[in-house]
Design a binder for these strands. Structure first.
Lengths: 364, 364
DNA sequence: CCCAGCTCCGTAAACGTTTACAGTAAATGT
DNA sequence: ACATTTACTGTAAACGTTTACGGAGCTGGG
């Protein structure tokens, strides 16, 4: 673990100047003889370029940061899974930040962009505050946001369309004859929480169903919270024949509770989750879930970032990923659902960010 | 997104030298008046330290790399989840590498340590080749290996004990009266695959059960491969009353097949998985699984790394994490298994790496 | 009154690269 | 034979920090 060789070491051994060494290593035109000498010296010494020194001079670190709320959430996992290979293929490394959705931590990440240890940041905030927007506008490096930001915000942006997503789910339940569709949501002060609440009301209205506050529960985006919410709802209100859940984890918690209460899924209560994570296919009964395209959003974000790095000046773009309903046993029963069905999806739509009179597609 | 201020900018505005600025920013003793001037200048300019320049001089990047086979595997996810906060608390960032278990890629990561863009590397290779060992020995930065390496390898090392893990599972099945216990394994040329194969034979012998090659299948560590293997086994051999799976994903694939074949779990065939991932608790029936302590191993690895960074010279250590059996419905049925049971675990044992006449604890 | 001992600060070197610029030597043109 | 071009190489500055060193100014003791 000694002091590694530098271009100076190589220069001495090859009997040339450090400038020549650098030129050879960068493939700039050099006399054959010199190239040979430098390369063999480098080889013998086991030379590896110092990335830090290089970055200092070139002002490029070839690192991209990804900041998410919680790496334990399969939604972000799906994103990381897509982001990583895209960046890797372009020669970038991935730096991971887990902020636990704490605003101060997210601001901190944004602030630390000034340290210039990365060339850009992909961020997926659960809540978007004014401070976020201020920091994003002032950021010292390119930023891509996964999730909805206020219309007109000048930033590259990838959105889900959870309004349409919720509508898909409600329509599906309605078509199955369900009429009292409860709703288990996450916090209303999060972007996805708020969007899904609005979408739920709207979708009911479209189908001519009444909005009943008695069958709506607000908790958190975790499994235990989902169980709590489901329990509370069951105790309070009878006759619910379906549960729309703002999240797969919430849905799993609800399944636990329904099972314990001796209710059959889907015969007594149909359940729909959201995000279509791995857990949805693995659960019992397998969970019908609205895919908001986490994987696609991750990929799109990475591509937006690479694109932005190539052209700093270009107009910010908005990519919206359409939702897709993955139908499984929790709504249509065992026989009908069959095995795991790979969902098909339309290509992501792309258009300028400013044209956005967009559905408030919550994310994730 | 302009050219940010540097200590030179601050120095000019505050009317002091850059050395004074640096001293103030690093909290070195300085006259009150100077401190005031520098700090207010820095504040006004919105100064943020350049991490790259700092790293070049200090030879510390405050970044740690984690290289795993596949970030989609919940085992690694569990590790990342533990590693991240430990590093963060110590002021380190996490750089992620996903190698798809390709040896060349892993060697590449090891090699790139010479670029000095990280202070250390935590790596979890599926196969450990001579080249791995050579590169580890020659690495230009501290390395921690999660997974078994040959005895005597001088490297910080965190191991699972899959031999004991398999034994726990076999003993459990044996105690339930199962006598023909099939085995669905992953590739034998991987460290965990080999270890689990050996452990399976050994555990059978301990219980006085015959080893029957006819009820052993070797595939891959994925769900689809697990399904394939289960199908092959069922077609070939009758009378299997239990399936030991080298991995939760394999077990889930097996469950799919058993269900499709109309076999009841656990009445006809009991199933045990390995790794105790989130999927085990979510599946139907919920899956009895041997936890090899992914989370604990991740945490231990991060701590070993931090420790090593503080004391480069110290002897390499070996931490072995004991396995724990999480009993669920796939072996004991619905009623008995009850809700999700948080497994209890003993503290990881620590001892010098060289003393290792250790079980070949496979990982992950 | 001089020097020792402080405290504080500025100068400059260093970290390992890249790169603008100038210099050398050979090759070519007149 | 000399001027000009060409092909290559070396010197040195720059990137933004940290830090060894020494100098300036002051205090206090002899």
């Amino acid at each position: 673990m000694g002091e590694g060789p530098t271009i100076t070491t190589i220069a001495e051994r090859a009997g040339v100047s450090i400038a020549s060494v650098s030129r050879v290593l960068n493939g700039l035109p050099t006399r054959e003889e010199t190239v040979r000498r430098v390369l063999s010296a480098a080889e013998e010494l086991g030379y590896v370029r110092n990335a830090v020194a290089r970055s200092l001079k070139s002002r490029r670190t070839h690192q991209i940061a990804f900041a998410m709320a919680d790496i334990g959430n399969p939604v972000y996992l799906a994103m990381v899974r897509q982001i990583q290979p895209v960046l890797k293929a372009a020669g970038y490394r991935l730096v991971l930040h887990s902020t636990d959705a704490i605003v101060a931590d997210e601001i901190d990440v944004l602030h630390s962009l000034g340290e210039r240890y990365v060339d850009g940041l992909i961020m997926s905030p659960l809540r978007v505050t004014d401070e976020h927007l201020k920091m994003i506008a002032a950021a010292r490096a390119p930023v891509v946001i996964i999730g909805s930001v206020p219309d007109g915000t000048r930033v590259d942006n990838v959105r889900a369309d959870s309004r349409t997503g919720v509508r898909l789910a409600i329509d599906h339940l309605h078509a199955l004859g369900r009429r009292r569709i409860g709703f288990l949501n996450g916090p209303l002060d999060t972007v996805p929480g708020a969007a899904r609440a609005a979408a739920y009301r709207e979708a009911l209205k479209e189908r001519g169903l009444p909005y009943d506050e008695g069958i709506v529960e607000v908790g958190d985006f975790y499994r235990a919270a989902g169980a709590r919410a489901a329990r509370a709802l069951l105790e309070r209100a009878a006759g619910v024949d379906a549960l729309m859940c703002a999240n797969d984890l919430i849905a799993l918690g609800a399944l636990d509770v329904l099972r314990a209460a001796g209710l059959r899924v889907p015969e007594d209560v149909a359940v729909v989750g959201m995000d279509d994570t791995d857990l949805a296919a693995a659960s019992w009964p397998s969970l019908t879930s609205v895919s908001l395209g986490s994987a696609e959003r991750g990929k799109a974000a990475a591509e937006l970032m690479l694109d932005r790095l190539k052209d700093t000046g270009r107009e910010p773009r908005l990519v919206t990923v359409p939702p897709v309903l993955a139908v499984r046993a929790s709504t249509v029963g065992q026989s009908a659902a069959g095995g795991p069905v790979p969902p098909v999806r339309a290509l992501p739509a792309t258009r300028p960010a400013d044209a956005a009179s967009d559905p408030q597609g919550g994310t994730p």
